[in-house]
């Protein structure tokens, strides 16, 4: 009986906390508007995107087929770990939204220089991390 009480109490706390932390903010990743865009980088800027968050690395991408321009939200710290240049090709999978007549993509996955980088999971939750600059090197085994 006592055991059941503990389990119920703990489960209640976990569920309550998950509900509070799961609240959404501002614009958010919508899997229903997901699209793949392939194009050429036209500009790279750092820009505030969300309240109380570090500025984001934004890549302005010209779609190859339509010549349409997209503002691609990458992540804050990728500004340091990724060296994008104007003229380079980039393929983005992400959620599209429009704001002030501009087409924006919240990037979930990018393909760049023959490598794939996962920026969010399939539900759109961010995969970038604090300490990415210092942590990444020691992961995935030794280099000689």
């Amino acid at each position: 009986m006592r055991k059941s009480r503990y389990v119920i109490l703990l489960l209640s706390l976990v569920i309550l906390q998950a509900a509070v932390l799961g609240q959404e903010t501002d614009h958010y990743y919508n899997v229903d508007t997901e699209k793949k865009v392939r194009g050429t980088i036209q500009m790279i800027v750092m820009e505030p995107r969300y309240k109380d968050s570090s500025p984001f690395l934004i890549v302005i991408l010209e779609e190859r087929k339509t010549k349409e321009m997209f503002n691609v939200e990458i992540s804050p710290v990728r500004f340091f770990s990724q060296d994008f240049h104007k003229g380079e090709e980039l393929e983005v999978v992400g959620s599209i939204y429009s704001l002030d007549g501009q087409k924006n993509i919240i990037a979930r996955q990018i393909r760049y220089r023959g490598e794939i980088f996962m920026l969010r999971d399939k539900h759109g939750f961010p995969a970038w991390r604090g300490g990415e600059m210092t942590q990444k090197k020691k992961r995935k085994g030794k280099r000689f």
Binding site: V45, M46, E47, P48
Partner: peptide
């Protein structure tokens, strides 16, 4: 364990600090 902080000076320049 550590913390980090990213500060954009302008749209083309940023600083990053971490203590671990």
């Amino acid at each position: 364990a550590g913390l980090d902080y990213l500060h954009a000076l302008n749209e083309k320049t940023a600083f990053y600090f971490s203590v671990v």
